[in-house]
C-alpha cells in the first residue's frame, strides 16, 4: 500500500486537475462513500453530438479517491458519452498504478462511479464497482 503513494499521486491529490465547477454543466452527478464520507461531484459539458467538451470535479476525501478522480478527468474531453459510460475499473487502475488494497478499492472507484453515472444519467443502473 505504501507503494501507492507515489509522487504523481500526491501531486494529483494536492493539485487536482479540472477541479471546481462549470458555469453551465450539461450533466452532473454526485455520490459519496458512506463508510468513510469521501464525496465526489462530476460536471460535464456535452455538445449536441454527445461529445464531452469540458469537465470539472469537486469533492473531499483521501488521496486515493481524489487523485484517481483527478486523473480520470484528464482523459474525458473529446470522448463520447457512450465511451465514458464504458470506462472500466481496469482503466482506472492502469491510471493510478499498483498497490490498491481491497479495503481501499471503493475509494479508487468513487470517481469512476460518479463519472459513469453522470454519463448514463442514473447511478442506480450501475452495479457496485467492488
Amino acid at each position: 500500500m505504501d507503494d501507492f503513494y507515489r509522487d504523481y499521486i500526491l501531486d494529483h491529490y494536492r493539485n487536482p486537475r479540472n477541479f471546481g465547477h462549470l458555469e453551465a454543466p450539461t450533466v452532473t452527478a454526485e455520490d459519496l462513500n458512506p463508510l468513510c464520507g469521501d464525496r465526489i461531484r462530476m460536471e460535464l459539458l456535452v455538445d449536441a453530438d454527445g461529445t464531452v467538451k469540458d469537465v470539472r470535479f469537486s469533492g473531499k476525501g483521501c488521496a486515493i479517491s481524489q487523485a484517481s478522480a483527478s486523473m480520470l478527468t484528464e482523459n474525458v474531453r473529446g470522448k463520447s458519452l457512450e465511451a465514458v459510460a464504458k470506462l472500466t475499473k481496469e482503466a482506472v487502475l492502469e491510471n493510478v498504478g499498483i498497490g490498491i488494497s481491497p479495503t481501499r478499492m471503493k475509494c479508487a472507484m468513487l470517481g469512476l462511479r460518479v463519472l459513469k453515472s453522470a454519463a448514463i444519467g442514473s447511478l442506480a443502473a450501475w452495479p457496485d464497482e467492488e
Binding site: M1, C62, A63, C107
Partner: peptide
C-alpha cells in the same frame, strides 16, 4: 493535509491498527 484514511493505510503497512473516518 493527509486524509485520515491514507494515514490509516500507511500505518497498516507497519502493523498499526487505527480507525479513520467519522
Amino acid at each position: 493535509d493527509v486524509h485520515a484514511h491514507d494515514v490509516a493505510s500507511i500505518l497498516d503497512t507497519e502493523g498499526v491498527c487505527i480507525r479513520a473516518g467519522h
